[in-house]
Simulated assay, not measured.
Amino acid sequence: MDNATWLANHTGRSDFILLGFFSQSKHATLFSVVTFVIFLTALSGNTILIFLIHSNAHLQTPMYFFISQLSVMDVVYISITVPKMLMDQVMGKKKISVPECGIQMFLYLTLGGSEVFLLAAMAYDRYMAICHPLRYPILMNHRICLLLVSGCWFLGSVDGFLLTSITMTFPFCRSREIHHFFCEVPAITKLSCSDTSLIETLMYLCCVFMILIPVTVISSSYSLILLTIHRMNLADAWKKAFTTCSSHMTVVILFYGAAIYTYMVPSSYHTPEKDIVVSLFYTILTPVLNPLIYSFRNKDVTGALKKMLNVGPDFQESIQ
């Protein structure tokens, strides 16, 4: 048997089986309803935020431009995995074809990688706004913002293409059951009958690159922000800086922490249950939290929302 025939027989065209999040639960229906509500909340929250930012002249600033891009990423990100998971539960089907699996993998890697770099760009934007306020309109003009966002999308797509192309070319001769609710790289590599040390090393190196650089930018930006605020010696400035830093760092810790566990911790420390729980944080919960953390407690956003809904001042006070 030649190599081509062997590869065809072992990779085949048979579908993968996604065991999903609800497969071993006694309360699958309840979890499905909760997940659906969370999905709708994330979808509506981010969509409203995008609409507000692009329709209100007061929100046409670099900070809100980056936030709108984050919301776009979150909408697409959660839409890649959750609808498929819920439809499988409702229809009783758990299969996903190899091409669909590859597309899903590429999209979530691209969006995840893009968001990692976007969080760094957002921290850099706050540094420029606070530490260089006079030159900020020039240093962070619309063209620079577009270049930064384009760079985030490009680096994310490179990561997606690289890891997906290598993972999906492995021969799969073990069980076709994926112990996950979507086609995540570590879950897929476990099904391969060949040596996966290459992809594991590559994942580790990519994760180091994609986390080390953004974390350096974020930590440097906020260190310089705090140093600048300290020199001002203003209580209000300290409070505002703490609010800004703590909100951003909450998202960074959740998102980066999950990525470090998934792609940098050795596979011997992984279990299907732990992988699913960690993945829930950055695929489902983070898209819900981002609009709340960044914007809906912001007076500019709540003011724009009030204007859009044409409601009284009590509404604005109730959501702050």
Rank of each mutant, 00 (worst) to 15 (best):
Y294K: 11
K307R: 14
D300L: 15
K307I: 08
L305T: 05
A304S: 10
G303T: 04
S295G: 09
N310Q: 15
V301W: 01
P287C: 04
I284K: 01
K299I: 13
D300A: 12
P287G: 02
R297T: 12
Y282V: 03
T286F: 10
F296Y: 12
L289N: 00
L285P: 00
I284V: 13
Y282Q: 02
R297K: 15
M308H: 12
L305H: 01
T283F: 08
N298F: 10
V311D: 08
K299P: 08
P291L: 06
T286D: 07
G303H: 04
T286E: 06
N310W: 15
K306L: 07
T302K: 08
M308R: 13
R297M: 15
L305V: 05
Y282D: 03
L309C: 05
L285D: 00
L289I: 06
K307V: 13
T286A: 12
N298Y: 08
V301S: 04
R297S: 15
V301Q: 01
K306H: 08
I284W: 00
S295L: 04
T283H: 10
G303S: 07
L285A: 05
M308P: 12
P287M: 02
T302E: 06
Y294C: 12
N298V: 08
I284Y: 01
K307A: 15
L305Y: 02
L285V: 07
K306M: 15
